[in-house]
Write a protein that binds this DNA or RNA. Sequence first.
DNA 1: ATTAATGTTCAGAA
DNA 2: TTTCTGAACATTAA
Length: 278
Amino acid sequence: MPELPEVETMVRGLRPEIEGREILNVEFCPCTRRPIQITPSARMFRRKMEKQEVLRVYRFAKRVVIEISSGDSIVVEPRMTGLMLVSAAPTQEHRRLCWHLKQKRGKAASFEFWDRRGLGTVRLLSSAEMTDLRASLGPDALEITVDEWKTRLEKTSRAIKVAMLDQKMVAGIGNLYASEILHRAGVSPTKAANRITDRQVQRIAVETTDVLETAIRYEGSTLSDGTYRNALNKDGGYQNEHRVYQKADLPCQNCRSGTIKRIVQAQRSTFYCPKCQR
DNA sequence: ATTAATGTTCAGAA
DNA sequence: TTTCTGAACATTAA
C-alpha cells in the first residue's frame, strides 16, 4: 500500500519520463467498472489538461502531484492499491486513467493511473486549492524536526501508533511503516503520545527518517498481495527488511527473546515486540 | 459458501 | 473539542 516511500518511488519513476512533456489528451479507460473519483467533472478535467505541459512532478505526503503549465495541479491519491505508471499496467482491467503525451524519442508515450480496488482519487486543483491542501496536513515525515514531534505528540492522549497515522499530526506515515518505526525506536505502540519521554521522541524522530529513507532506497515495500509496484511495474525490495510487519509469532530480531505480537488499534493491525518496546 | 482481513481517508457519532 | 467507528472498495484466505 502506497505510503511515503512508495509514493516517492512512483514520483521518481515518473519524473524523468514526463517532465517537460505536453499532454495531448486524457483517456478515461472504458474497462473501469465504476467511474474513477475525479474532480472537477470529467469534461472539465479533460479540457483543463489537454495541451498543457507538465512542469514538475513531486510528492506531497502520500500524494503524487503533477503541476501543469496552467498553474493547476493533478493530485493523485493512490490510497490502498493505486499506482502511477509509465509502463504496462499489472492488469488491463483496473486501468482507470491514461494521459497521452506528445511523442518524444526514447520517452514514454503515456502515463496512467491503475487502481485495483478503486479507492484512489484523482483531482485537478488550482494553486489556491493546493495551498489549502498543504495547510490541512501536518509536516512531512521527512521534514519534521524533533521539536515539532515533541510539541505535536504532547497535545494528544491517543496511542502513539494511532497518532503517527494521523496525517494532520505528521504526513506520510502509514500502517506498515508506523509499526516498523516504533519497533526500531523501542517504543510501545500502545503508549499514550503525551507520555512518550523526550528520549523516546528523539528515537522516533531518528528512526522515522532512517526507515523512510532506507525504504525509498529499496523502492518501497511490495507485500504478498503484490499490489504495490514502482512506475515501471517492478516490485520494491523493502519488504525483505521488515522486522515486525506481518511477522506475528516470529521471534523478535532485536531482543531475540521476545515474540512479535499482532494487536488491533483503530481497526488496523499493529505488530510489535512487547518485550523490547516500552 | 460465507466471513474476515487488508489500509487510507472522510463523515458523522460518541 | 477530541476520539472513535463505519463506510467506501476488490480480492484473497480461512
